[in-house]
């Protein structure tokens, strides 16, 4: 294992984040504040509670997940797409490193950034609503697992994409709808039975449900299933990346 290479990639990516610090942090904080104003204050004042939790507080885990998923996918996909676009990927391919180092470096940096953002949003939410974290350990576990899993997904998208358009399509057309329909702003139980059944095909339901449980001990599905689904998704992404590097798909040739 070439640890210096991992360090080099990680710091290189974090430096890229640092250069765009304002837009990276300010944008999510502003949009989260707007969510609190719209959903928490305006609409939330008429809903009062969801599953016995104050509505404003209820949406906090969902909002964190929303940003975490989007940022993980976008950071990681852009991180690996950019060297492909500029051609500097030749250096990664000719260096004495395997896909393990490349993935740890890029995915590690992308996940770090989105975790930091997730925590910033958590802190921001304290300004608007009371937040209680019942199981801090599981909260952090879900946070980290989700950030890593979706950074891996982003990495795959970055390798698959052969234009900036494709880079935008997946987060915009798939991740955002799945998150909104994944119970970020409501409990799945409030849906009619048919839509509840449909919802359970959405992997993001399990992430949000597990994450919300670590806050308020209310969940749409059991925590064990949430954790299992997250891990299954994680390993699926790892398997795909292993295949990509073994075959050189969209990297060599």
């Amino acid at each position: 294992m070439n640890f210096r290479a991992i360090k080099a990639i990680y710091y290189f990516e974090m430096a890229r984040t640092a250069r765009t610090l304002m837009q990276s942090i300010l944008a999510p904080v502003i949009s989260t504040s707007l969510y609190f104003v719209v959903f928490g204050a305006a609409i939330g004042s008429r809903i009062t509670t969801m599953e016995g939790v104050d509505y404003g507080s209820f949406i906090v885990p969902g909002l964190i997940m929303l940003t975490l998923l989007m940022q993980s996918v976008m950071n990681a996909s852009f991180g690996i797409y950019f060297p492909k676009f500029t051609g500097t990927i030749y250096e990664l391919l000719s260096a004495p490193i395997s896909f393990v180092e490349i993935v740890i470096g890029y995915v590690g940096a992308a996940a770090t950034k989105s975790i930091i953002l997730g925590l910033i949003i958590l802190l921001t939410s304290y300004l608007f609503v009371p937040v209680r974290i019942a199981h801090p350990f599981w909260m952090v576990t879900f946070l980290v697992l989700t950030a890593v899993t979706f950074s891996l997904l982003g990495f795959i998208i970055g390798i698959w994409a052969d234009g900036f358009e494709k880079l935008q399509i997946v987060p915009l057309l798939i991740i955002t709808p799945l998150t909104f329909l994944g119970g970020a702003f409501y409990s799945v139980n409030v849906l009619p039975p048919f839509w509840q059944a449909v919802t359970f095909f959405n992997p993001i339901v399990y992430l949000i449900s597990g994450f919300r449980w670590s806050f308020y001990e209310v969940s749409d599905v059991s925590v064990a299933i949430s954790l299992g689904m997250t891990l299954a998704f994680l390993f699926a992404c790892i398997a795909i990346i292993w295949w990509i590097f073994r075959t050189g798909y969209r990297l060599k040739n």
Partner: peptide, 13 residues
């Protein structure tokens, strides 16, 4: 930065 990055990538201190 870019030259130092290359050195790191190749595992050199």
């Amino acid at each position: 930065a870019t030259v130092s990055f290359s050195r790191g990538l190749f595992g050199k201190p």
